[in-house]
Amino acid sequence: MKPLIIIEKKSDIAFLTLNRPEKLNALNYATNDLLLELLDEIENDTSIRAIILTGAGESAFSAGGDIHEFTQSIKQGGDVAVREFVRRGQKMTSRIESFPKPIIVAVNGIAFGGGCEITEAAHLAVASEKAIFAKPEINIGIPPTFGGTQRLPRLAGRKRALELLLTGDRFSPERAYEMGLVNQVVPHEDLIPTAIQLANRILQHSPLATARIISAVTRGLNTTIGEGLEIEKEQFARMLHTDDIITGLDAWIERRKPVYSGR
């Protein structure tokens, strides 16, 4: 049986590829659970410092939740649907959002529903010119369930997000870029090389400082500015007793490139 997610390691980057191209890489429960398991493994693997997440095939990053599967949960009642579908999806996107190593999504095609919500949750995203986005849940009579009603307004603003959420209209990678959903739009053949280049620009810095920045930004977005500044102070304080902070400061003073230990 083919793997639901292909994992490859190249240097210090893990490449995760959603691998249901015949289903447009729809996120069935098993794929969702496997992604969470892989993230746990990668967090504990000190040789991996970043993740690039993409989809198999030429058509889709992910078309979202597996409608046939979650329909059966919905027919079993609200408690089952919330437990099996909603909580599972929200746990997955929250894990991506708060993951301590940078996650870059390479959107190679369709990113609908849950696929769009993964893109919203990821730290960074690069889109192919062939990518296409949508929040189509309203077309089947439900609101988004993997965090789309919360993250998209934070990225795009309330009115632009509501237009997409309430119409289900598709939108281009260029519009996704304008709204802050992706960092770059590139020719299709440049998608993975651009994602790798972006990862390498990050990986030249301290992995500990990277994790502290991700934590401060993720937690601070949901607080007041005052609370956010306290979080920022806390994350700075956590760096004070590390080798990396001394390495970075000494290298700057001596005008040389630092080599971080991650300790």
Score class of each variant (00 low, 15 high):
12 D>K: 02
54 T>N: 03
112 F>P: 01
2 K>A: 10
149 T>M: 15
13 I>C: 00
232 E>G: 02
153 P>I: 12
152 L>F: 15
260 Y>C: 03
103 I>Q: 06
46 T>I: 11
66 D>C: 05
6 I>F: 08
73 S>W: 15
114 G>K: 06
122 A>R: 10
228 G>F: 08
164 L>E: 05
55 G>P: 02
30 A>H: 07
163 E>M: 13
134 A>Q: 04
181 L>R: 10
63 A>N: 08
63 A>E: 13
76 Q>A: 05
74 I>A: 15
7 I>E: 15
42 I>Q: 03
178 E>I: 07
82 V>S: 10
120 E>Y: 14
193 P>H: 13
81 A>S: 06
230 E>A: 11
96 I>M: 09
115 G>T: 11
23 K>F: 15
45 D>K: 05
171 F>P: 04
38 L>P: 03
190 D>H: 12
60 A>I: 06
257 K>V: 10
65 G>Y: 07
62 S>V: 01
164 L>H: 11
251 A>G: 00
76 Q>L: 08
192 I>N: 00
39 L>D: 02
80 V>R: 06
32 N>P: 01
149 T>L: 14
162 L>H: 10
262 G>V: 00
222 N>V: 09
2 K>C: 04
152 L>V: 12
255 R>D: 15
64 G>L: 00
120 E>P: 01
85 F>H: 12
48 I>S: 01
224 T>A: 06
68 H>E: 15
91 K>G: 09
37 E>C: 00
132 I>Y: 09
88 R>H: 12
16 L>A: 02
43 E>T: 03
64 G>W: 05
23 K>Y: 09
208 L>W: 10
73 S>K: 09
105 V>I: 03
260 Y>P: 01
193 P>R: 08
25 N>K: 06
3 P>H: 04
243 D>Q: 14
210 T>Q: 14
105 V>M: 03
240 L>Y: 04
33 D>I: 06
12 D>G: 01
20 R>I: 04
208 L>P: 04
248 G>A: 00
252 W>C: 07
16 L>M: 01
110 I>N: 05
209 A>F: 13
225 I>T: 14
227 E>W: 02
129 E>W: 07
213 I>K: 13
144 P>W: 12
3 P>M: 05
188 H>F: 07
91 K>D: 13
208 L>V: 12
221 L>K: 15
129 E>T: 07
104 I>A: 03
157 G>I: 09
30 A>Y: 11
199 A>W: 12
6 I>L: 14
187 P>V: 12
65 G>A: 11
146 F>S: 08
244 D>C: 03
105 V>P: 06
102 P>F: 12
221 L>G: 09
155 L>A: 07
46 T>D: 15
28 N>D: 15
103 I>D: 03
112 F>N: 04
92 M>E: 05
45 D>L: 01
123 H>S: 05
52 I>R: 11
121 A>Y: 04
167 T>V: 06
82 V>R: 09
260 Y>H: 02
251 A>K: 00
124 L>W: 12
22 E>Q: 10
177 Y>V: 07
152 L>C: 03
256 R>F: 01
197 Q>A: 15
180 G>I: 04
121 A>R: 06
14 A>K: 03
221 L>C: 08
1 M>P: 08
173 P>F: 06
